[in-house]
């Protein structure tokens, strides 16, 4: 119910300032993620980014996805990453170089990628439709998952199981 209301609220108010806010947070924190020397700080900024992305989802009337984003990314994946960082490096005192020597080249490539994609975005004739978003988002997604997308749903569960087993096998300590 809260989500429904939130959605209603967002559709009522102008989304433009919120979008810029979220965009700024996303871009800024994402840059921090890729450039900070302390990998732990990077992870924290990643969480921030993911939060902001969840906000963008809400702006786009994807409330369920926003919740999933927060639950899985912020809740699970981020914790996992922080766990990994803590397991693999003693980071507290280290200020080591976290970038390799292809920074310049990578930057160049990225800028060009950005240019290319933004260019193609602007030059593409999108056949957009000006329709309101479906009501009862969550209800519909649940129905679709159980009807039309039941097979991908099951396959994804198998993927998760495989990932689970794979992770266990990989990370298991070798018995001496």
């Amino acid at each position: 119910m809260i989500l429904e209301n939130l959605s209603q609220l967002i559709s009522d108010i102008s989304t433009q300032p919120l979008f810029y806010l979220f965009s700024f947070v996303i871009i800024a924190s994402a840059m921090c993620v890729v450039s900070l020397k302390n990998i732990f700080h990077s992870a924290l900024f990643l969480i921030l980014t993911l939060f902001a992305v969840a906000g963008i989802y809400i702006l786009l009337h994807a409330e369920f996805l926003a919740v999933v984003q927060v639950l899985i990314y912020v809740g699970a994946v981020s914790v996992l990453i922080i766990f990994a960082i803590m397991l693999t490096s003693r980071l507290a005192s280290k200020k080591i170089e976290q970038s390799n020597e292809q920074v310049t080249l990578g930057l160049f490539i990225c800028v060009l990628f950005l240019l290319a994609s933004v260019g193609s975005l602007t030059y593409t004739a999108w056949n957009t439709v000006d329709l309101p978003m479906i009501e009862h988002n969550i209800l519909t997604i649940g129905k679709l998952l159980m009807t039309r997308y039941v097979l991908p749903f099951e396959v994804v569960s198998v993927v998760l199981l495989a990932a689970l087993i794979g992770a266990v096998v990989l990370a298991r300590e070798e018995k001496a």
């Binding site: 965009s23 996303i26 871009i27 994402a30 840059m31 993620v33 890729v34 990998i39 990077s42 992870a43 990643l46 980014t49 992305v53 963008i56 990453i81 990994a84 960082i85 693999t88 490096s89 170089e97 976290q98 970038s99 390799n100 292809q102 920074v103 080249l105 990578g106 930057l107 490539i109 990225c110 800028v111 990628f113 950005l114 994609s117 933004v118 975005l121």
Partner: peptide, 24 residues
């Protein structure tokens, strides 16, 4: 926004020395 985020991701993948950084 999506493109910018993706580009930043690429940059990270290309430049991070740390494997966890790349994953992020």
């Amino acid at each position: 926004l999506s493109a910018i985020l993706f580009a930043i991701g690429i940059f990270g993948v290309l430049t991070r020395r740390n494997a966890v950084g790349i994953l992020m």
